[in-house]
Design a protein around this nucleic acid. Structure first.
Length: 539
DNA sequence: CTAGGGTTAG
């Protein structure tokens, strides 16, 4: 019945088939691919609407990973709660009205036998964060379930989802209902403000602040800072300044206030004003802190003005607001972006000498640096010895850095070994980045079968959904490998999930598809390019 | 309500 959910599979290294592109050219593969294209897997998927996490077509994966084996039962972690999740998400369907969602859920036996926890409601709202109709329908249904009382966070999430969709009237209506029930907190206000400002409606954000009293909330330093921070993060530092001047006589700024402005000026690329704010801060009797200086350092880093960076660093070390792990990590990341790995390592040494306590993000950066500097053994030592000894926890990114390092240096077995270690240690789960590195190295070796196997395990075992960058990457690589049928089916799938492709991706695919005289596909791509607003590459 | 990752090539 449900062709999407297939048991995960794994291949023992001994059974690995010959890794060559020629496999893709077997007539069987050709046949399957043309079938996939004919049947528009994307559209089929849209109708089936599985949870987003398992959206990649099972047919595609199944056929990509022909040489796979079944996993032992113990590794199949499909639990009861997961089944319930699948039922609910399946019942919600696809972008029907709020009331329709409510009715579907209310009339479903399984759904009504569920013991709703706050956690499940949160997960559901998160799942439908881009689909406000379904989100509100789910919320309404949850409310009607006996014994369930919404947490504040659930309400706030709903407000945030409506704001994200720019459904301002619905949002205001919803907030009004919350106001009547005295459910509006500063957290709710934060969501409203950030959504307004994010959509360029910063005047509305200011208005909400003005009306705080009506929600039973106070206009104080805390709520003012929230407004100022919102404006600054949206590059409206001038407006923030105007607001501060107006409020100054009623509300006193604190150290946070000044740091918010330092950040705001830096974001607007106006270091002079940021430095001037440091003086102003002193004038108000606040000592600039690590955060103040680190913000400025980051700004100089972005300008590659390392002379100034080291100047401030020395100043900090001398004048009693010593740099911390964040300060050093900021500098190192910036040097890494410039490929100055050796210099970056000197910063790490300087940090250790200063006695500053390293944290996870620092080590992640250090491992990345060592990897890029080609010092694999040192990276291994940091990962295996130094971090555990100092009790610094290892997270997904730490593993990702190590895995990326092995992949980059063609040590595929070690990379996969670490992936398995992640799975068994249960300390952290792999994410899309983990698979990104692994997939890249498969393409590099020309092992498309392994690509299929990894994709399958990614969606079935770890419930990861392909994001924009993964789709873009896969399409690009399949095109380059002269396998644009696969690229095209992924493209269709991407569209069906409302993920907008980049202009460049469309162009590349179009060119490849034309080369192969896939006229229907070419037309469809051209049509999509005309109708969909294409996103520009991220920087 | 104040500061920090990762992909990108032959």
């Amino acid at each position: 019945m449900d062709p999407i959910i297939t048991p995960p599979c794994q291949l023992s290294p001994a059974r690995r088939p010959p890794s060559v592109f020629t496999i893709s050219l077997c007539s069987g593969f050709r046949f399957i691919m043309s079938w996939l294209v004919r049947n528009r897997i994307g559209d089929t998927l849209l109708r089936l609407k599985p949870p987003a996490s398992i959206a990649l077509s099972s047919a595609l994966i199944e056929n990509l990973s022909t040489a796979s084996e079944r996993l032992p039962e113990s590794l199949d972690e499909s639990s009861q709660s997961e089944e319930i999740w699948n039922v609910i998400v399946g019942r919600v369907g696809d972008r029907v009205s709020e009331d329709e969602v409510f009715h579907r859920l209310s009339n479903d036996e399984v759904c009504n036998s569920v013991n709703l926890s706050d956690g499940l409601v949160h997960k559901l709202l998160h799942r439908f964060r881009d689909d406000w109709r379904s989100a509100l329908g789910v919320l309404k249904w949850a409310e009607s379930c006996k014994g369930h009382k919404h947490s504040n966070e659930s309400f706030d999430m709903a407000v945030d989802i409506l704001g994200k969709a720019k459904k301002w009237d619905r949002m205001k209506e919803f907030v009004e209902m919350m106001r009547r029930d005295k459910l509006v907190t500063l957290n709710t206000i934060a969501k409203i403000m950030r959504r307004f400002a994010g959509a360029g409606e910063w005047e509305e954000a200011v208005k909400i602040f003005d009306s705080l009293g009506g929600f039973g909330l106070e206009k104080n330093t805390e709520s003012m800072n929230l407004l100022l921070d919102t404006l600054c993060k949206e590059k409206r530092v001038e407006q923030a300044r105007a607001v501060l001047l107006e409020l100054k006589s009623h509300i006193t700024p604190n150290a946070h206030t000044f740091n918010i402005f330092i950040h705001g000026w830096c974001k607007a690329n106006r270091v002079e004003e940021a430095l001037w704010t440091i003086q102003e801060m002193k004038g108000h009797g606040f000592r600039p802190c690590v955060i103040s200086y680190t913000t400025i350092i980051r700004c100089y880093c972005q300008h590659s003005d390392f002379i100034k960076v080291y100047e401030i660093l020395s100043e900090m070390e001398a004048n009693g607001s010593p740099p911390n792990s964040i300060t050093y990590t900021t500098i190192m990341s910036s040097l890494n972006a410039q490929k100055e790995f050796e210099e970056s390592l000197r910063v790490a040494t300087r940090m250790k000498r200063s006695g500053c306590e390293p944290d996870t993000l620092f080590y992640n950066c250090l491992i990345h640096t060592l990897a890029r500097a080609g010092r694999l053994q040192e990276a291994e030592r940091v990962f295996r010895v130094e971090m555990p000894e100092l009790g610094v926890c290892i997270n997904t990114s730490t593993y990702n850095s190590m895995i990326a390092m092995y992949c980059h240096h063609d040590e595929e077995e070690k990379a996969v070994e670490l992936l398995r270690e992640m799975e068994s240690s249960k300390l952290c789960d792999p994410d899309v980045h983990t698979y990104h590195s692994l997939l890249r190295s498969c393409f590099k070796r020309g092992d498309v079968v392994e690509v299929g196997r990894l994709l399958k395990e990614m969606v079935t075992r770890h419930h990861l959904s392909l994001d924009e960058s993964t789709y873009t990457f896969l399409i690009q690589r399949f095109c380059r490998a002269n396998m644009c049928e696969w690229a095209y089916s992924l493209f269709e799938e991407m569209i069906s999930q409302d993920i907008t492709p980049r202009h460049r991706t469309c162009l590349l695919l179009l060119e490849e598809v034309k080369k192969k005289h896939m006229n229907e596909s070419a037309e469809r791509i051209e049509h999509i390019m005309k109708t969909v607003k294409l996103s520009a590459p991220v920087k």
